[in-house]
Design a binder for these strands. Structure first.
Lengths: 346, 346
DNA sequence: TCAGATTGATTATGCGTATAATCATCTCGG
DNA sequence: CCGAGATGATTATACGCATAATCAATCTGA
């Protein structure tokens, strides 16, 4: 083993400045060489500074940069749940994939806020009142937020952020990137109709958030045109033999399920009465699990452009950071329709 | 939409201090009321300060706290490849899971270095000469590194880091967390022996790195004791009918495969000659893919404690950061043996 | 030729907090 | 009644960086 590492404190701007024989202001200017700068640096000095940085292994202290109001090229990623869940179904993953791609392209590093431990209750953006995210230039918020007032609070601080998924708040003008569920579901209804279906049922989750509203709206948009549409919101467990019987009695030939659980529950009931999908009744899954297991492939379903959403969220966040103060950026990305074997012609 | 964001600055310690009629030092002391403090606060003053904090909605600025405390509470995660690969097999994931857990417990945020885009060639720790990771307090290095000299270079800068996977370098004293492949493979040999196997073959990857050496060593450790052990390193593609024939002719009753590809290739050859696993020959997979598909479960194999490795890497990194200058921390975690159906008694 | 523009750099200051160094009282035993 | 110790609070400074305010030197053109 060698003598050990050079344990003197990390090099600072002053160290670099001293070695290069210039002032710290010059070093600072070299690091963040922006166009309309109040302080200019000559070729020669810049070279010396860069050499000094290299020999000292200097890297700016982001925390100090933050305090002083500089740019860090770091964007935060905040989730209310653990970002790397241990159970198989990793909801965040496809988004992260897109986020990483976007970050790479724009030269940003990704800061995951894992520090705000959620020993008691869920994570909070403001654990003991402080916004832990301040070190980043802005943040992308992922997943369900239990506390919408936190969004308002964050908004009020002026910290730039983009949520993935639409967020409506009366008193805040939020940036978000969302999937166009409305159009996607309308499209599904059209496809069903052109397959001969006339009586369709939408079965949704009981917890109603923005995206659930959108799906329902996309469904009900298609009211008329000789179609009979009904909406029902219930827990997947409530889909039992009786429910199915009534559903069939009402003449429904296709059910649009908002969650995969509902789809599976429905199929089970059909199988239980020795029926078949799609012969007994067709199903279109408006949401499907992420892992590409064989069992998912057979479902006729909607696909959500998660990677694209993540990538776009980064781009929009950067726009918001670069030119702050203007109106919110919102984006809606089209979903895909994935043909399977659970929707039939009649 | 409202008029826009509340752009009035957040309340600071000074504001609170002014309102409470005390100095900022008192406010600071009230906030972080630690035991052996150099500055004391009276009951009365504390009460006024708390009231002032309440009415002003004061929240400490974490960034400033960090700066003043000289800590960033940020640990970096560096990978030479994209950390969120799009192909199904996500090598990093289980490690990240453990890393997040460790970071949470220790109040650290995670900085993923996605900015050093690798358009030309692999990522580098030192793009344009500067250590990109300096923004963090330390870092965890994940995955294969093509350039071992970079590790030495990083080591020389005094930047604290821990690699996941053993790293041997003559002229550097590195911190690492690794799986105990040696013991694990020795253990496999023992189990085979107690199942009646006497002639065993180790089939390994051609690319030999530290962990491959460890596995081989664990295997050869068991030389003697009436066992006939042979080691062969070849590409999975080179496992053909001839190779299998020779393997059987040599009297081998079990093969330890270092990669899953080798295991699959071997099984294919067995099936091709209308044999069966484990009747024709037993296989123990020393490495298995991560996704818990059914096909993995049937293999008798070694499991690597990836999550624990990630978590421990964080702990050790923090130790290294908090008490710098002492000798390197290395850790070896035991692997598990997972019984499957590909190893039989004879 | 010389005032104004341009270039290259310095000095001074602020960001919000933590804390070491002080200082002013008050208490109390002898 | 006095000095030692305890108590409560202030002042000063550092953390590392960005940048506004300046300043000196050089260049430009009429």
């Amino acid at each position: 083993m060698t003598t050990g590492q050079n344990r003197t404190k990390r090099a600072t701007q002053s160290d670099v400045a001293a070695l290069a024989g210039v002032s710290t202001a010059v070093v600072s200017a070299v690091i963040s060489s922006k166009p309309g700068k109040t302080i200019r640096v000559g070729k020669e000095a810049e070279k010396r500074v860069r050499e000094a940085m290299e020999t000292l292994g200097y890297a700016p202290n982001v925390v100090a940069q933050s305090l002083a109001g500089g740019k860090r090229n770091i964007i935060g990623v905040f989730t209310y749940e653990a970002i790397f869940p241990s159970d198989s179904e990793n909801f965040f993953y496809p988004f992260l994939l897109g986020i990483e791609r976007g970050a790479m392209q724009l030269g940003q590093d990704l800061l995951l806020f894992t520090s705000s431990s959620f020993e008691q209750g869920p994570r909070s953006i403001f654990p003991n009142g402080a916004n832990r995210m301040g070190v980043a230039d802005g943040a992308i918020l992922l997943g369900e937020e239990p506390d919408k007032s936190e969004l308002k609070q964050l908004y009020d601080t002026g910290f730039p952020f983009v949520t993935i998924g639409r967020r409506d708040t009366k008193d805040a003008d939020l940036n978000w990137v969302a999937a166009d569920y409305t159009t996607a579901v309308s499209d599904v209804v059209d496809r069903c109709a052109s397959n001969g279906h006339r009586t369709l049922k939408f079965v949704g989750a009981t917890k109603v958030r923005e995206q659930n509203m959108d799906r329902e709206a996309g469904f009900l948009n298609k009211q008329g045109n000789g179609l009979t549409l009904s909406v029902e919101r219930l827990a997947a467990d409530d889909i039992d033999a009786n429910w199915l019987q009534k559903c069939l009695d009402d003449g429904n030939t296709v059910v649009l399920t908002e969650t995969f659980k509902h789809a599976v529950a429905l199929e089970q009931q059909v199988l239980a009465r020795h029926g078949n999908i799609p012969e007994t009744i067709s199903i279109v899954a408006l949401a499907a699990p992420l892992n590409r297991s064989k069992d998912v492939e057979r479902w006729t379903r909607i696909s959500v452009p998660r990677e694209e959403m993540g990538e776009l969220a980064v781009r929009n966040l950067i726009s918001q950071i670069r030119t702050p103060g203007h109106t919110a950026i919102t984006a809606t990305l089209p979903c895909g329709f994935v043909p399977g074997t659970t929707l039939t012609k009649i």
